[in-house]
């Protein structure tokens, strides 16, 4: 109840006008129905990491998904540091919530498409997700952008672009933005070679990191072994 009160205060205080024409629950149900077409998939993709303190090559990855909420990114070859919250590129984490409050919060242009903003507040305190904002293309019933706050892994902003697999609700490109902690080892631990590059002052404190996943192919509903996710 306290949470609902604060939601009302927040909405009234910010002067948002609730769009009476859009019923968020109906819209979300439509989106969920589309996403539910996919029981599992195996996707071949390219992963690009852009984090201030990580220098990584492009890596070829395989993304495994199994309903309701299992997702695993495995490198086909090589090493990549995958942000923990990337698991939220699977929107079933949000759409699969049972006890939540959804509020329509207006519209917003994402990649030239007018999207409905749906704010979701889980009502169960045990959920890892504490809040989510979805930018939904009401025509195609696709989520183009989401901002998901979690207890464990902080806040992730995920932007999605769709192409050949749009009818399954599967994106061609996902861009995950997340907060990073400062990377620092104790001085003298590594006895680095000073090539002058460390003298360029790096921004201090938490920074934004990005991970981009470019999907090439999906194999949908062909079954994925549970062992993959262990």
């Amino acid at each position: 109840m306290l949470r609902l009160f604060w939601i009302c205060v927040l909405l009234l205080g910010s002067g948002w006008k609730v769009n009476a024409a859009i019923d968020p629950a109906t819209l979300l149900a439509g989106v969920k129905k589309k996403y539910d077409l996919v029981r599992d998939y195996t996707a071949s993709a390219q992963l690009k990491t852009n984090v201030l303190f990580i220098k990584a090559p492009l890596s070829q990855v395989t993304v495994y998904y199994k309903r309701p909420d299992q997702l695993k990114i495995k490198n086909q070859k090589g090493i990549s540091f995958v942000p923990k919250g990337t698991v939220n590129i699977n929107l079933n984490n949000v759409l699969g919530l049972r006890n939540f409050e959804a509020i329509a919060a207006g519209t917003y242009q994402v990649d030239g498409v007018t999207c409905e903003i749906i704010k979701i507040f889980p009502l169960n305190d045990e959920e890892d997700i504490t809040r989510a904002t979805l930018y939904v293309d009401p025509t195609r019933l696709l989520v183009l952008k989401s901002i998901i706050s979690t207890r464990e892994s902080g806040t992730y902003q995920i932007a999605m672009q769709y192409g050949a697999y749009a009818s399954w609700g599967l994106p061609d490109r996902v861009l995950v933005e997340f907060n990073t902690r400062e990377f620092k080892l104790p001085k003298g631990t590594t006895l680095d070679y000073d090539n002058g590059s460390s003298k360029v002052d790096a921004p201090k404190g938490p920074q934004k990191g990005k991970v981009e996943i470019l999907y090439r192919t999906y194999t949908i509903n062909q079954g994925v072994a549970d062992a993959i996710f262990r």
Binding site: L52, F53, I54, K55, A56, P57, G78, I79, S80, F81, F183, K184, L185, P186, K187, T189, T190, D192, S198, A202
Partner: peptide, 14 residues
Amino acid sequence: EDLVVFRETDLHII
């Protein structure tokens, strides 16, 4: 496998 090199302020994956 790929090589990960740790520096005091960053890490490099080669």
